[in-house]
Design a protein around this nucleic acid. Structure first.
Lengths: 116, 116
DNA sequence: TAAATTTGCTTGCACTTTGCAAGTAAATAA
DNA sequence: TTATTTACTTGCAAAGTGCAAGCAAATTTA
């Protein structure tokens, strides 16, 4: 298990071991916004590098936050949040609201109405 | 201004530009827990390297989330959250609660009662 | 008050992660 | 059938991380 390299039993530290980088939560944001395909994530305004995107999607799947689904009649995969991934709405919402309120010039273009 | 290298106007992206790494939010956690001195942060169970701690404290001060104060009659500095830094309680709380609920074996040792 | 210890860092270096650019095979569209 | 798009992979330079050591000033102990 990923238990072995835990820095501590602190819930903040453990959550940061999953989400504590510059990209993971942005991919999760896009998943909440309804994006499903690799190219859709890549087209987001932050322009994530494709190697990093591939890596993050794989990690999200590994950690049970997203799943890779190949729809019937198609060959290419969709990505979607799992229940566990959807439970991050509180975290994403708190981050989004903080940014909107405390960082000048931010706008909630991708945000669902429920965050405002 | 730090405006120049903003990845987008997304509040999530901009917040991650401030907090999106493995250590910053842990230092903020310790500040919320009442720690003030360099050595106190260094003694936290995650054992942050001192060069990284120095870097993060400087960044927090630069971004207006913490301040460095030298108390009267002492030479060495304390660090404390600014109002802006304290406004991160919602973010830290959401992260902590998510970890407690969704990551097995996490414990809220440093958490103020208000998070539970 | 002198010596020992602690504090608050900085420095150096190896290792890992990030980011850019290019490449590619399979899928889809024209 | 050909062109374009998709979903990646690869290679490499640059930046970030982590360990260990070093150090001067401050503080504690003897």
């Amino acid at each position: 298990m990923a238990d072995i390299d835990r820095r501590s039993c602190c819930p903040v530290a453990c959550t940061l071991d999953l989400l504590g980088d510059r990209w993971t939560l942005l991919v999760i944001r896009d998943l909440f916004a309804g994006k499903r395909r690799f190219s859709e994530f890549a087209r987001s305004p932050e322009s994530i590098a494709t190697n990093i995107l591939a890596d993050r999607l794989e990690l999200l799947v590994t950690h049970g936050l997203a799943e890779r689904v190949v729809p019937e009649g198609r060959k290419r995969a969709d990505y979607a949040l799992t229940d566990r991934g959807r439970s991050l709405e509180s975290v994403l919402g708190a981050v989004a609201r903080w940014g909107l309120k405390h960082i000048e010039g931010t706008e909630a273009r991708l945000a669902p109405a429920s965050w405002r």
